[in-house]
């Protein structure tokens, strides 16, 4: 038996996907690093001028209310996990008014949700805020170092 693995993020014709995230931003599968919060569409990205979850208001999501055709789903990455439901309560009337389907998730889960839905060819959007707390694994630290320098050399 021969098993093969195909990695979604390596198939570029499926659209934009998020390879990794950190406190400063996101790395996409087309080798672009995005700094700060981002609005992602299947094949395009916009900078999102918000600071934290408190800035997510009706006004900051107004782009999604006027798009034609209406987006199937908006994935909202809140950064860190939110504990209470005050944010949900605040955003609920807005969703009902404009009939927008919304998925509120911590950013790490929002990234993978967006990747999967995008690979399925759905018309979705993601509005993501980088998390404030992020502890990388040793493997991730190694990968990052390898990307910028020869890890066997000592920097002056």
């Amino acid at each position: 038996m021969k098993s093969t693995v195909s990695i979604l993020n390596n198939e570029l014709d499926l659209g934009l996907m998020i390879n990794s995230y950190s406190e400063v931003g996101f790395r996409l599968n087309n080798d672009f690093t995005i700094l700060g919060p981002v609005i992602l569409f299947p094949r395009s990205a916009l900078s999102w001028n918000v600071g934290s979850i408190n800035d997510i208001t009706e006004e900051s999501l107004s782009l999604f209310t006027v798009l034609e055709p209406k987006i199937d789903l908006l994935v909202l990455g809140t950064g860190d996990k939110i504990e209470d439901t005050s944010f949900h309560k605040k955003i609920f009337p807005f969703l009902k008014k404009h009939k927008i389907n919304l998925e509120i998730l911590p950013t790490d889960q929002a990234c993978s949700t967006f990747n999967f839905l995008n690979s399925e060819g759905r018309y979705i959007a993601a509005a993501l805020i980088p998390p404030t707390k992020f502890t990388p694994t040793d493997h991730e630290v190694f990968d990052t170092k390898q990307r910028y320098q020869n890890i066997y050399e000592v920097q002056d």
Binding site: P42, L46, V66, P69, G121, Y123
Partner: peptide, 20 residues
Amino acid sequence: YGFHEPREVPPGRVTLKNAL
């Protein structure tokens, strides 16, 4: 843009292409 863009857009709405 990864989805079909309509030829006609009702007033008060905009396609992603035009928005960008």
